[in-house]
């Protein structure tokens, strides 16, 4: 028993990240209901939008837009329900207090949550894209794989940074996270152009919507998937640059808000009213 010397620093951080990601990864394996609720359900919604375009007689690439939008919904749902709202659930369940006194610190817990959630969501997104593309015979030609992966990676960092930012905000806000997450469903699907090119919103509305990293990420990836036919919102390089800036900003903001939340929680006792 004495060889169990606790690690510190980076090794502890890594252990904590793996520890916190474990329930997310193993949970998906144990409770198979996600197969239906997190894959089949978004797919059903996606197919409904595909039929809208079919009813409108839209070109084939629009079907591709919708399928990509369906996959993006999976990421957004994960970030809103399992990241942004997570502190709220953890507070309700009594975990948050424990997380606040463990020596690895809250950032390690959040990184673990993000990592675990991301792994599960990538699988869901791939399933949605694969099934949707098979059903509707959609073909993609990625013109620049490294750039495509770079856009995706930077967008994911920004997205999960936004999730952590929201996690602190939801808790500070004090409203039920359930409702706040609901607020960011259809309105975000609309503003970020999940199912249509965001250029249709107009320049300024599109720029406003670009605060959500998925807006520009979707547009950039569509440029790479449908080169020449997709009407770009901004040039690819500009979109990638803004996405990078967003990712850094959200990480900085998330860190600031986490500290603020920890401080307020300790100062005002907002984590619990039991005394």
């Amino acid at each position: 028993m004495n060889d169990a010397t606790p690690a510190r620093g980076m090794l502890r951080l890594l252990r904590a990240i793996l520890g916190r990601s474990y329930p997310r990864i193993i949970g998906a394996n144990r409770d198979k209901s996600w197969l239906f609720y997190d894959t089949v359900l978004p797919l059903l919604g996606t197919i409904a939008f595909v039929y809208v375009y079919k009813a409108l007689g839209a070109p084939e690439r629009f079907v591709g837009y919708v399928i990509m939008g369906g996959a993006t919904v999976a990421f957004w749902m994960n970030v809103m329900w399992s990241m942004a709202a997570q502190f709220y659930w953890d507070k309700q369940g009594g975990n948050l207090e424990l997380y606040m006194v463990v020596p690895c610190g809250i950032p390690a817990i959040l990184l673990g949550m993000s990592f675990g959630g991301f792994v599960g969501t990538v699988i869901r997104a791939i399933a949605i894209v694969a099934i949707g593309s098979l059903l509707f015979d959609v073909h993609y030609t990625v013109s620049q794989w490294p750039v495509f992966l770079l856009v995706f990676g930077v967008a994911i960092v920004g997205l999960y940074g936004l999730g952590v930012t929201f996690a602190s905000l939801f808790l500070l806000w004090g409203r039920e996270a359930w409702h706040m997450a609901n607020l960011f469903m259809e309105p975000v699907f609309f503003l970020s152009g999940f199912y249509f090119p965001v250029r249709a919103l107009g320049f300024w509305a599109g720029m406003g919507a670009s605060l959500i990293p998925l807006t520009l990420a979707l547009d950039a990836m569509r440029q790479l998937l449908f080169p020449g036919t997709h009407p770009p919102f901004l040039p690819l390089g500009t979109e990638l640059g803004i996405l990078g800036a967003l990712a850094i900003s959200f990480i900085v903001l998330a860190r600031f808000l986490l500290r603020k939340m920890e401080y307020l929680a300790r100062r005002e006792g907002r984590l619990s009213l039991r005394f």
Binding site: A4, T5, P6, L11, R12, R15, G19, R20, G94, L98
Partner: peptide
């Protein structure tokens, strides 16, 4: 009532041991 219902007792405790940086094998022991 803290904890994750999806995890077993041993897994739940292992997860917390990681927050303290304990190596997995001796932690499980």
């Amino acid at each position: 009532h803290s904890g994750y219902g999806i995890l077993t007792v041993r897994e739940q405790l292992w997860m917390f041991s990681q927050f303290y940086g304990l190596p997995s094998k001796p932690a499980l022991a």
